[in-house]
């Protein structure tokens, strides 16, 4: 169990490093690409619902912090997304390349939409036009990154079990 937690922690460190170092480097338009969301999606699919909610709560808040905006927009979206994904994974088994890709795409769209809604609710109008390119770039990269994280997580788990 401890080793399982260690894997979670290492993945978390990797995601934070990517989000903090890599994403700002590749370009301004990539700011909606979210490695922490990838992790949240994987935890929501693989872990218990409570645990995944706690992780999402924490990862969402951290995303807000890293994006230097009001803390809560991504926090709430991550929690809602995680809750829905947890609910779905309880009802059906989600695995394989395409289902995870699809789930990641939908989660990304959901998270971005909820965040925009919250921004409108709390801060008034949001200039959506500047979000179009980053949205499509995020929609392209985040699910791929989710697949990569899922691959690593799955293999790491296998390694733990074999040991």
């Amino acid at each position: 169990m401890i080793k399982h937690k260690v894997i979670q922690f290492l993945l978390f460190l990797a995601a934070v490093s990517i989000q903090m170092l890599l994403v700002p480097l590749i370009g301004e338009n990539f700011f909606l690409v979210n490695a922490l969301l990838c992790l949240s999606i994987i935890f929501s699919l693989k872990e218990t619902r409570i645990e995944s909610l706690v992780w999402s709560f924490f990862l969402g808040g951290l995303t807000d912090l890293l994006l230097f905006q009001h803390i809560g927009y991504y926090g709430i979206s991550f929690v809602i997304s995680s809750y829905i994904l947890g609910f779905l994974s309880q009802k059906m088994v989600i695995g394989g390349f395409f289902p995870i890709l699809l789930i990641a795409c939908l989660s990304f769209i959901l998270v971005v939409l909820i965040s925009i809604c919250l921004m409108v609710i709390f801060q008034g109008r949001v200039d959506v036009t500047i979000l179009i390119t980053p949205f499509f770039l995020g929609l392209l990269i985040t699910p791929v990154a989710t697949l990569a994280f899922e691959f690593i997580y799955k293999n790491a788990e296998k390694f733990v079990i074999r040991k």
Binding site: I50, L53, G60, G72, Y73, G75, I76, V79
Partner: peptide, 13 residues
């Protein structure tokens, strides 16, 4: 738990 988290972030926001 989800509601609690959402309330927490709403207050924070």
């Amino acid at each position: 738990l989800a509601i609690a988290f959402i309330i927490f972030y709403s207050i924070a926001l």
